[in-house]
Design a protein around this nucleic acid. Structure first.
Length: 474
RNA sequence: GGCCCCAUCGUCUAGUGGCCUAGGACGGAGGCCUCUCACGCCUCAAACAUGGGUUCGAAUCCCGUUGGGGUCACCA
């Protein structure tokens, strides 16, 4: 294997960057970074009907959010610009002509109608359709009206390649047919476009989804016809939904950017994706640096894996816990802004520590943090009914006194004072704390009460308790 | 259907012939901790698809079966 691999991620801009594509990109990127190689982003947009510029942008944005930076590709200077196949059409035509000149390809003018007829006939006879080679030796010149270019597959023999994840795979050449590599309108078909660009960009390792294994022998034959040393291949198994079907929209979020919007840390997603199909002993949590250092092809599994959102959520929580608070604040501030709460990251960082402990997503953190930047509180009705009653009123009043007197001493002192008060009243701390919690946060679930009170500040804390007192009737 | 690939707890996986009465993680159940909720900790339930070989010995190697997936375009 080349010391400094040149690898690429080559998405088709026909939608968003999905989870499966992200994992393919990740493995390529990890390999390039570990071996000090080159990671190329190439946009395969030769399907003009389905490709959109919006989609290109979405893919680029998603890659940036994930932090999978590319050395060559869109927005980057590089020797193989442009990195959009639709802008490289002369390249494919040039290579096609070269193959024709060598006799490795030929022009075919069979009409679509004729081919369809043969296909139907084959279907009727329940046999696989294969282009019969009508134009193989006609010597039709390049550029003939309605002419496509077909690659001449060998008549006999076989091709074997040693896949990094699946091992040796052999294909009989008789299973192959002279496929079209260049359409009548001059656009290359996938197999050819990919090969030409891999050759031109000097790709040494191709890692992609395993739906491409059947394409590989054909592509190998093309690399050879182009006198290019065949890259090493690694075919990654599919990612499935809970029903074991190929992961798709109906399984929930499959778009990378959607995870960003739902409050996931890019590192957590990457960590999850890496562990879906790859392992390193019993380790579950990896920093990006560890991933780069430890990734290997030997431990990429050959089995399709089911995407497990719950494990991703758990991992996200683990990542939140280990991410420095100032950094979290920078992620959460925009989410708060989206909710109409403007707060600068430094102020936000002060209230985050007690929240970090109990949030699984950044969105949850934003939801829990906003109370510290707003006046008053919206009571959860059930919580208020149960905890803000004539019976708890005296307790709340006593608590108010305590807060008013001691809040300046910090959470520990406040807690100590509350404990003493509870003991005096012959109660457990919980009985005293819970009404106060509801008074101050509106709900029965919150970060530790005394820290919450202190972070709220004397005035706001007292105002909220007063408002709660007003609801206790009596 | 042809060709190709795959097969360990519900899920992600460790395991590369003896260390496996199969380990870890998510999820689940129970418990501890505790001002609520989380975190953390402890315990439990849970798997080598199946039939043949090979071998002193098979989750690990080979073959068949079954099951799943991929692919058969002038899409990618």
């Amino acid at each position: 294997m080349a010391d400094r691999p040149r690898v690429r991620f080559a998405p088709s801009p026909t939608g968003y960057l999905h989870i499966g594509g992200a994992r393919t990109a990740l493995f390529n990127w990890l390999w390039a970074r570990q071996r000090k190689g080159t990671f190329i982003l190439r946009i395969e947009d030769t399907d003009l009907a389905r490709s959109t510029v919006e989609s290109q942008q979405v893919i680029v944005d998603a890659m940036k959010w994930l932090g999978l930076d590319w050395d060559e590709g869109p927005e980057v200077e590089g020797p193989h610009r442009p990195y959009y196949q639709s802008q490289r059409l002369n390249k494919y035509q040039e290579y096609a002509k070269r193959l024709i000149a060598k006799g490795a390809a030929y022009v075919c003018t069979c009409s679509k109608a004729e081919l369809d007829r043969l296909r139907e006939q084959a279907a009727k006879e329940k046999r696989a359709f294969r282009y019969p080679g009508t134009c193989r030796d006609k010597g039709i010149p390049f550029g003939a009206p309605g002419g496509v270019v077909r690659f001449r597959m060998p008549d006999g023999g076989e091709t074997t390649f040693n896949d990094l994840v699946k091992g040796p795979i052999t294909t009989q050449h008789k299973e192959l047919q002279d496929e079209v590599i260049l359409r009548a309108d001059g656009l290359p078909l996938y197999n050819f476009g990919a090969v030409v660009d891999d050759v031109d960009m000097e790709i040494t390792l191709v890692a992609r989804g395993d739906d491409h294994v059947v394409n590989t022998p054909r592509q190998i034959l093309m690399y050879r016809a182009l006198d290019y040393p065949t890259p090493v291949f690694a075919h990654l198994p599919m990612i499935l939904g809970a029903d074991k079907q190929r992961l798709s929209k109906r399984h929930g979020a499959v778009s990378v950017l959607q995870y960003r919007d739902e409050g996931y840390l890019p590192g957590a997603l990457l960590n999850y994706l890496a562990r879906l199909g790859w392992s390193h002993g019993d380790q579950e949590i990896f920093s990006l640096e560890e991933l780069i250092e430890k990734f290997d092809w030997e431990h990429v599994g050959a089995t399709a894996g089911v995407f497990n959102p719950e494990k991703l959520l758990w991992l996200n929580q683990q990542w939140i816990k280990k991410t420095p608070v100032p950094e979290l604040a920078r992620h959460v501030a925009p989410l708060l802004a989206q909710r109409g709460v403007q707060v600068d990251p430094e102020r936000l960082a002060r209230v985050l520590p007690p929240i970090v402990e109990r949030a699984k997503t950044l969105v949850e953190m934003a939801d829990q943090a906003r109370t510290f930047f707003e006046r008053g509180v919206r009571f959860d009705e059930a919580a208020a009914r149960k905890n803000l009653t004539p019976e708890t009123r005296p307790l709340l009043a006593l608590a108010r006194e305590l807060v008013a007197r001691r809040i300046g001493e910090g959470p520990q002192a406040l807690e100590q004072a509350f404990r003493e008060l509870a003991t005096q009243q012959g109660l457990g701390l919980g009985k005293l704390a819970q009404p106060v919690r509801v008074a101050v946060t509106g709900t029965t679930v919150s970060p530790p009460l005394f820290e919450t009170l202190v972070l709220l500040g004397r005035d706001e804390a007292l105002a909220r308790i007063d408002a709660a007192l007003a609801r206790t009737g009596g």
